[in-house]
Design a protein around this nucleic acid. Structure first.
Length: 479
RNA sequence: GCGGGUGUAGCUCAGUGGUAGAGCAUCACGUUGCCAACGUGAGGGUCGUGGGUUCGAAUCUCAUCACCCGCUCCA
């Protein structure tokens, strides 16, 4: 990094090289929506693949799922999103400041006024009393209609987090996978939130992709697992090449914690917004047993929901059962013959934020023979293209030989082939895409069947037998 | 949401009322002997979008969309 100072430079690089484009660009764009171009799609895929491989596949205590984006509306009632995500807000007519109604204070002498009585409220900005617009609903969850027949279609939500799909399937996974506490479920998928403020490129968008883990553990062991995941998740970013000086933990203060959380820490990255800005890449939270307990209430509230015209707003959850710890979502610990609702540690990472961080952190400029060289120093596992194959010149059978090597390699790695322009230019093109290796067929290839393999970072070359290029790359790329 | 700024070729930008431009990039042909070589040529523009003023608008004006910076917000 270090050489990309402004977000605009990142945006420009992303567009120029085909990493990230504005969504609906030819129509002038759609706020807060972005598309991944050819290189960006490969990069993001690799980020997700590394997460899935290391967090899910390589751990004996993890399994993965892939839930639908649309879920039963009562899931969002039970989770608290319906209430917390549908706040009433009002604008001060004098200073235009928009405030949530439940954040407004009553004026002196009107302390007993109803929470929705704006005539008694004080503007926190300008101090004017009762000078507000009519309260309006602020919907933080995306709504859509399910059912083609307008008369009996039902309002459902696009999930604002993937986590609830995991909680809703926790029972199914336990019953089908032979997993036992402590264990976790991972999921990668799109989520949607009507953020009050978007901005900052793909950092905060209304449609985004999450990589989430819900790790279920016995109450009392939760602090140990919290620490475990905290360290593990930081290490993941470091292992994939992010500069340690650009990463830090930030513990949430107790008054900052969500209502369900016992503890929460953010993994932050120093993004090049403004003058350099520490922003959250990922949050690791101790969600206690809150969600599973809430869903036990939600499960018993479905009849009530039907009786209330399938309107979640009008459907209060039934009270929690006294024997909640022996409810349907309780875990039965056979060896110890005890039942409990597990505690949950949640490492929740943003796939788009992570991709941006890897991209920005890989960017570098160095000087070669007095010229600036732009290079993306991606970790080989993340590099969109693993190797490029060139004939040194377009004659003496070099293109044919190079094509044969390329055709063999592309079945194993994402590769590219280029015979246009001078060799130095082709190297630079690949440097700017972050390709770790370039393979060149030259005059000597006809004599001894060797090719040169040029390293992106050192620019040094070694001669490798053409038949061994595949294993050479596999070894160097650690794939 | 508030305030400020920006929007012209894929990218960086010049053009401030009178024929739409440059560098880089892209493509074609030739050349080539390892680090953004060279030559010749080519393509590429709703000047963010829509209205208004004007004989004439990239330029002035109104609206709108998008992005950036600073606040605010971020269950």
């Amino acid at each position: 990094m270090a050489d990309i100072r402004k977000l605009e430079d990142v945006v420009s690089l992303c567009k120029r090289r085909g990493f990230i484009f504005q969504s609906s660009d030819i129509y002038g764009g759609l706020a807060s929506c972005y598309d991944y171009g050819p290189l960006g799609a490969e990069l993001k895929r690799n980020v997700k693949e590394q997460w899935w491989k290391q967090m899910v596949q390589m751990r004996d205590d993890m399994v993965g799922i892939d839930c639908s984006i649309l879920m039963h509306p009562m899931i969002w009632k039970a989770s608290g999103h319906v209430d917390k995500f549908a706040d009433l807000v009002a604008d001060c007519k004098a200073c235009k400041t928009r405030t949530r109604l439940d954040h407004l204070q009553n004026a002196p002498g009107k302390e007993d006024a109803d929470i929705n009585d704006t005539s008694a409220k004080v503007c926190p900005k300008c101090g004017k009393i009762g000078n507000f617009t009519e309260p309006m609903e602020f919907k933080l969850m995306f709504e859509t209609q399910m059912g083609a027949n307008v008369d009996d279609s039902m309002t459902v939500y696009l999930r604002p987090e993937t986590a609830q799909g995991i909680f809703a399937n926790y029972r199914n996974v336990l019953d089908s996978s032979r997993m036992a506490v402590p264990f976790g479920i991972g999921q990668i998928g799109k989520s949607f939130r009507n953020e009050v403020t978007t901005k900052a490129f793909i950092f905060r968008t209304r449609e985004f992709e999450q990589m989430e883990i819900e790790f279920f553990c016995k109450p009392g062991t939760d602090e140990k697992w919290y620490e475990h995941w905290k360290q593990l998740r930081m290490q993941w970013y470091l292992d994939l090449g992010i500069n340690k000086d650009h990463l830090r933990f930030r513990d949430h203060a107790s008054d900052e914690l969500a209502h369900y959380a016992k503890a929460c820490v953010d993994v932050e990255y120093l993004f090049p917004f403004g003058q350099g800005d520490w922003q959250e890449l990922e949050g690791v939270a101790n969600r206690t047993n809150y969600d599973l307990r809430q869903h036990q209430r939600g499960m018993r509230s479905v009849t009530r929901w039907i009786e209330n015209d399938r309107d979640v707003i009008k459907t209060p959850l039934v009270d929690e059962n006294d024997k909640w710890d022996k409810g349907p979502l309780a875990y039965f610990d056979q060896p110890n013959n005890e039942k409990y609702i597990p505690y949950v540690i949640e490492p929740s990472a943003g796939a788009d934020r992570g991709t941006l961080a890897f991209l920005v952190d890989a960017y570098d400029e160095d000087e070669v023979n007095g010229e600036v060289r732009n290079v993306l120093r991606f970790h080989p596992k993340l590099a969109p293209v693993k190797a490029a194959v060139f004939p040194l010149v377009k004659k003496e059978g070099m293109p044919e030989k190079a094509t044969a090597i390329y055709d063999d390699l592309k079945g194993h790695f994402n590769c590219s082939y280029d015979l246009k322009g001078a060799i130095g230019r082709r190297y630079r093109r690949q440097d700017e895409a972050g390709t770790p290796f370039c393979i060149v067929v030259d005059g000597q290839t006809n004599e001894d069947n060797t090719v040169t393999v040029r390293d992106r970072d050192s620019m040094e070359q070694v001669r490798v037998n053409a038949d061994q290029v595949k294993s050479y790359l596999r070894d160097k790329l650690d794939l």
